[in-house]
Each structure stands twice: as structure tokens, then as C-alpha cells.
Design a protein around this nucleic acid. Structure first.
Lengths: 134, 134
DNA sequence: ACACAAACTTGAATCATTCAAGATTATGTG
DNA sequence: CACATAATCTTGAATGATTCAAGTTTGTGT
């Protein structure tokens, strides 16, 4: 598969990687459960280690909106952003509206060397939005 | 002062509010220390309560970049953003480059009702930037 | 001055995440 | 194909920010 990242191929790693692919924006706990459904007992520490390794290798991306635990997604390298529901915490992908790397226009402010702009759109997901109206 | 927010005026609240004003982007622990320098012993729980109350009242804003604990700032209502140093965690204010509420252009994606766009610019602060080059 | 709800104190609990030590296992080599 | 070795996993405990809960104190309007 993807051992091009100098990573050993182990059962837990394959399971975690496919779990992240199949469940975008899942938190660590959900991933642990999915992995255990496929492999039987796996230590939570192993899952944490693997997620760290995959994140460092750039195979998954870690996101963590305020008030949420860490979540992971497999869509990397395309600088997309996220919409987060204030009510239920649901996360959806949002493509850059302006094009590639649009938000880096505020570069070099205060002497900072900016290399990435992370955007989080806060609001209500469709379900919570209609629930609030009623 | 600012009791227009239906908040009782207590010593801890005044101390916390001025601490946040004097130390922008300070974390809870720092605020606790500053408050204690002015009032003597104050329970951490009180500071947490006050920060919550002030946040709910809109007098302070809570920010929490990934990998950081909660931080608070008194600059509210102007939709500015933040630059965060990947190395030391320093935070700097960044005005919207495009104008007021610029990043809401991606509104209504996936049926979400967006009410705020939060932008975090990741990079290196001046100090860490020069340290890395050497 | 009083009453009552809001705010504070004290002390313990929660929970995601990390640390540490020892047992397994994937991978390149002989 | 068996081995050595470092990477990875297991087990179990620790950390640390934040929250919960019960009881006491205090600000505010009457």
C-alpha cells in the first residue's frame, strides 16, 4: 500500500489507515472501535502511536476544533478547510472558495513567517439548523 | 466598569478581566497567577468560572489553537484572526487583510449555516524564525 | 438591614492523551 | 530460510487541563 513513507507495514497500521479513510473526521475513540472490529483487541496506545506516525508521515491530517477531541482525516495535501457545527460537532469538508492557498494573503504580519492558513467555518449543520428553527 | 452584561461586580471578576486586558492571549494558568498577585489566594475554580462567564457575556474571547491550552483575549467584536508560532506557541493578532468578514465567502457549503470564519495562520514567530536559520 | 440568588471555596472526579518498561514482530542480511 | 535488531505493540500507570458537586460567602435590589 503506502509504505513509501518509511513505515513498517503492520496490522494495526493498515487497520487504522483504512479506518481513517472510511470514517473521515472520526475521533480517536471511534477509530479505536473500528479497528477493534477488524482486528480484535488492539491497545489504545497502539492506535495513538499509529495516528501519530501517520500524521508525521503526512498520510493523515489531524484536526481539532475548539471543544472537540482530536479528529483525523485522510484527505491531505489539498489545503481544504472545514465547517464545524456548533451544536453537534459535525465536521464537513469545505474547498477553498478562492483557489489554491487563498488565505495566505495576510502573509508576513508581525514578522511571522506564515506557511499555512487554517480556516474553520463555524455554524450549524443542516440537521441542527432545522431542529433549531422548529 | 462593564456591568452592562448583567454580571455582578466581584473582586475576582475585576481582577480576571483586567488580567486578560493586560496579558492578551494568556492561558488560564497565567491568568490565575496574575490574579493571585493582585488579590492574594483565589481558587482556580473561580477563575475558570469567571472566564466562562466573561466569555458567555462576550467580554472576552476564548481561543485554542491545536496543541495549546485555552487562551483568552479581550479584543472582541472585530473579527480579527491569529498567527500562531509552531515552535513556541506565541500568538499575534492579524487583522483581516480583505476587509470585514472576508472569509465568509464559502458560505452555505454542504447546507451548513455559517456564522463565523476562524482563521489561524501557522508559521514561525520572528524569534523562532531567526533561531531556526542559524 | 434582609433575603436570596449568584459567586466563591474546597476537594474530588473526569477523560483525552502521554509516559515508561517490557514483550513482539517486521525487515534486511547471511 | 533462520537471525539480529530496531521498530512497534501491550500493559498499566501518570499527567494535566478542565469540570462536577456540596457547602459557604457575598453582591444586589427591596
Amino acid at each position: 500500500m503506502l509504505r513509501g513513507a518509511e513505515l513498517r507495514v503492520t496490522r494495526p497500521r493498515m487497520a487504522v489507515l483504512s479506518a481513517v479513510h472510511d470514517h473521515p473526521h472520526a475521533d480517536t475513540d471511534s477509530i479505536i472501535h473500528v479497528v477493534r472490529e477488524n482486528l480484535g483487541e488492539v491497545s489504545h496506545q497502539a492506535v495513538y502511536d499509529v495516528l501519530h506516525a501517520l500524521t508525521d508521515a503526512g498520510l493523515v491530517r489531524r484536526i481539532q476544533p475548539m471543544g472537540s477531541v482530536a479528529r483525523y482525516e485522510a484527505r491531505v495535501g489539498d489545503n481544504h478547510h472545514h465547517a464545524v457545527c456548533r451544536s453537534c460537532g459535525a465536521v464537513a469538508d469545505v474547498d477553498c472558495a478562492v483557489g489554491a492557498m487563498p488565505c495566505l494573503t495576510a502573509s508576513d504580519h508581525h514578522g511571522f513567517t506564515i506557511d499555512e492558513a487554517e480556516v474553520i467555518y463555524w455554524g450549524l449543520c443542516p440537521d441542527c439548523s432545522s431542529a433549531h428553527q422548529s
